[in-house]
Design a binder for these strands. Structure first.
Ligand SMILES: [Zn+2]
Ligand SMILES: [Zn+2]
Length: 796
DNA sequence: AGCACGCCGACT
DNA sequence: GTCGGCGTGCTC
């Protein structure tokens, strides 16, 4: 038998299958197996994507070296999907396969240098042992090793390291009868206290064996006693795999099923019908904040399980809170797996294994969970489908929604896209009938909508010395805190955080590799580049003029925090932005501290718009609703509307009236006006008009072509050639914009030139783009790369 | 991506 | 004569 293998070498030239002979001693080789194969001089990891009886390749065939897992990691659906996605996204198939699997299944590579002769072994560098090639650093050593290799006194061993391992627990089981143990106990020496404890436990808790080593240790039985017990055949020692379960300790109470209202029930009926009929239909569930979308999801999942099918639910990373997870687990218990970036690598791998071994049938997770190895899927849900985080912002640049559609087609199951503020893309598709629109117009528990007040900053008086918080806003904040109620304060700004400025010469500390300033990271006391990862120690004098008068400009939230502390005596503030949430789990920590009333104000960037509902929050303040609008991105209005609608939903509960204050310089802008009355449908109408006039999505599809080189003139020249090619090959109606140099000049010493293609129908686009990628490879050989991003999030 | 091979200039 | 720099080509 012969296997077609995709090798773990991400390059254009190796982006194809390589054929290998399957040696008869390798059992369990199947489509989807993770294997080690010889590849040229070295060994690499690979994935079997096809198996056939006859050899296709004309030349000499090598054999597969090794199969790496007991359970075949890739299900056939994903093997097939990887091919489709690689083609659609213009990336290497191996990159897609890696993205589909937990990072634990990524190979590590090592080169060992093995001495072959006695004289070589005797050299101090070997000291009789094999050494790692990476440890050979000095010129003298490199020279020596090269000599040895040339004279065959040493050789290089290429090793593929498999990280995947299960946590092992040691358990002790019993094989004698209770009577036997009583006899053993009777014959023990009088001073064998620990052995007596052990035997008494065996006799008293006979049924609860086998026991884990830890449990026995808790009784005071140490390993020496256990070793003795094993030697005497009282106990048998075994190693078993256990799953690292981060939530094992949490007691989750079964919750009772909530009765749906008529509107929810009607939506559910539509979804259930398609689950039963096994129809790959896409629904857009448009439900205002508080309309109970989650309940509909949970009911649909229950229907799915009832039909012996599994269900996949995606939630934005930031909304994947313990509360959210518990809500699902309380309904479906152990049948739920959670794939979450806050888990450790091992925990992620174990959750993934539980899914792969079909031990759970409900998967909840963020973007990458769309590749969960679930079989027999009966329903896919994407909650808050408008969230930009569903699009991965590095290669492979897939959108979870697009992948979901492919998986729903493969599994013949419905897909539910849910949102209070659907993306215009999805809403427009629902309009055209491509998706079926389901609407929830009522708040499920009849909560009042909060009152929204817009503060016109053109006329407002500012409190304090900074021009950010108006007197009106400050007064309401003070009043709310005085009533012992809580406030959420949102700064609508991407985290421009701490950079170094010299007060003497005005120098801003920049990354040497990128045209962008370095950020100060308090936790590691270093300056770091967000684009290339470059790091240096925090300077104490200006690197340019050596003046000591350097300052580290705080983030916007930090400034406001300081101001509020000045203006409101004894105020307690929790700040939440990229600076305070960099550490794992800190995001949750801040939220729960605020929930427990440890602060009066939760101050933060966009990330506070999601997550928990705080019953004691009666005031939500948006400091600046305009920053989002000012960004010259075609979807700035949509993003602002989404954000405002979402935060407005945070204020007020059934018993206390909520108030939302929005400060803006554009009080008449439709995004702000309509968000204040939570009128999504009207916003949709207005925004569609704007998009139509501007030739923007969803009236056009977009593709961003980036031409990248270390050599700026080369990048520019090639970009113009690409543009000419595109204009020539694509149809008249298609708009080709650019090339323009990217906003940040260079990133990691590479220059980016971008071309935007807008099209309605372009049958030759894929062909043309792949032609361009090949052409770039041929013409400029080394230093030109062409990256393609379908439906980019940020365009001009 | 690595890794080797080969060609050429520079240096014992 | 040999070391090492880089351009070129291949990996089943
Ligand atoms: Zn200076
Ligand atoms: Zn950088």
């Amino acid at each position: 038998m012969f296997a077609e293998v995709i090798v773990d070498v991400a390059a254009k030239q190796t982006d194809k299958t390589f054929e290998y002979k399957i040696p008869s001693e390798l059992k369990n080789v199947a489509v989807g197996s993770r294997v080690v194969v010889p590849f040229g001089r070295r060994k690499v990891q690979g994935f079997v994507v096809d198996i056939h009886a006859e050899a296709n390749y004309q030349g000499e065939l090598k054999e597969l070296s090794l199969v790496l897992d007991d359970q075949i990691p890739l299900i056939p659906e994903l093997v097939k999907l990887s091919e489709v996605l690689a083609r659609k996204l213009f990336t290497y198939r191996i990159s897609i396969l890696q993205a589909m699997l937990p990072s634990m299944l990524k190979a590590g590579y090592k080169k060992n240098i093995v001495p072959l002769t006695d004289s070589a072994r005797a050299l101090p560098i070997f000291n009789g042992k094999v050494i790692d090639a990476a440890t050979v650093r000095s010129n003298a050593d490199i020279l020596l090793i090269n000599k040895l290799l040339a004279t065959k006194a040493a050789k290089i061993d290429y090793v593929v390291k498999n990280k995947a391992s299960h946590k092992k627990d040691v358990i002790y089981s019993i094989s004698n009868s209770k009577k036997d143990y009583l006899e053993i106990l009777a014959n023990l020496r009088t001073n064998a206290f620990k052995q007596k404890i052990l035997l008494n436990d065996i006799i008293e808790n006979y049924e609860s064996y086998p026991k884990r080593q830890q449990e026995l240790a808790n009784l005071g039985i140490k390993s020496d006693v256990l070793r003795n017990a094993v030697n005497n055949n009282w106990l048998q020692k075994q190693e078993v795999d256990v799953y690292r379960d981060p939530t094992a300790a949490d007691m989750i109470h079964a919750s009772k099923v909530v009765q749906l209202n008529a509107e929810q029930q009607a939506a559910l009926d539509q979804i259930n019908q398609q689950i039963v009929r096994k129809n790959a239909k896409t629904f857009l569930l448009e439900g205002i904040t508080g309309s109970g979308k989650t309940e509909v999801y949970l009911h649909a999942i229950a229907e799915c399980l009832k039909n012996n099918k599994s269900a996949l639910m995606l939630v934005p990373e930031i909304a994947l809170t313990p509360q959210m997870v518990n809500q699902v687990k309380s309904r479906f218990g152990k049948d739920v797996a959670v794939l979450h970036s806050a888990l450790s690598e091992g925990e992620k791998y174990d959750e993934w294994c539980r899914i792969r071994n079909q031990e759970t049938h409900v998967v909840v997770g963020a973007r990458s969970a769309i590749f969960a190895p679930l079989t027999n899927i009966g329903l896919i849900i994407i909650d808050e489908e408008h969230e930009a985080s569903y699009k991965q912002d590095n290669t492979p640049r897939y959108h979870a929604r697009d992948v979901a559609i492919l998986r729903s087609e493969y599994n013949h199951c419905p897909l539910v896209l849910g949102s209070a503020t659907p993306s215009l893309y999805s809403r427009a598709r629902a309009q055209k009938g491509v998706y079926q629109l389901l609407r929830l117009n009522n708040r499920a528990n009849n909560k009042e909508l909060p009152k929204v007040q817009i503060i016109d900053l053109k006329k407002a008086m500012f409190a304090g010395t900074q021009f950010d918080i108006s007197v009106d806003m400050l007064n309401v904040i003070k009043k709310t805190i005085a009533k012992k109620e809580q406030v959420i304060l949102l700064l609508n700004r991407r985290g421009f955080s701490n950079f170094m400025l010299c007060r003497e010469c005005g120098y801003v500390l920049q990354c040497p590799n990128c045209d962008i300033s370095l950020n100060y990271h308090k936790d590691i006391n270093q300056m770091k580049c967000h684009y290339c990862g470059y790091e240096i120690n925090k300077p104490y004098v200006c690197p340019k003029c050596h003046s000591k008068h350097i300052i580290f400009l705080g983030s916007g939230t930090q400034k406001i925090q300081e101001e509020l502390i000045n203006m409101i005596p004894n105020v307690r503030i929790l700040r939440m932005d990229i600076d305070t949430t960099r550490k794992k789990g800190s995001y949750q920590k801040i939220l729960s501290a605020f929930g427990q009333g440890q602060a009066d104000i939760l101050l933060g960037t966009q990330m506070i718009a999601k997550g928990l509902d705080f019953p004691n929050v009666t005031l939500v303040c948006v400091v600046n609703a305009d920053i989002g609008l000012a960004v010259s991105n075609y979807n700035a209005s949509e993003k602002t509307f989404d954000l405002l609608t979402q935060v407005a939903g945070r204020a007020g509960r059934a018993d206390k009236e909520g108030l939302v204050l929005i400060q803006t310089y554009n009080p008449d802008h439709y995004a702000i006006k309509l968000a204040s009355v939570q009128d999504y449908e009207q916003f949709y109408q207005s925004e569609m008009r704007y998009r139509y006039i501007g030739n923007y999505p969803p009236f056009y599809f977009t593709t961003l072509v980036s031409i990248v080189s270390h050599n700026e003139p080369l990048a520019a020249k090639q970009a113009f050639l690409v543009k000419r090619l595109l204009t020539k090959k694509l149809s008249q109606a298609t708009i080709v914009l650019g090339p323009t140099p990217s906003a940040i000049g260079k990133i990691n010493n590479q220059y980016f030139y971008q071309i935007l293609v807008k099209y309605k129908k372009e049958p030759y686009l894929a062909e043309t783009l792949s032609y361009i990628q090949n052409y770039a490879q041929d013409i400029a050989k080394n230093d030109i790369n062409v990256y393609i991003d379908q439906e980019p999030e940020n365009i001009m």
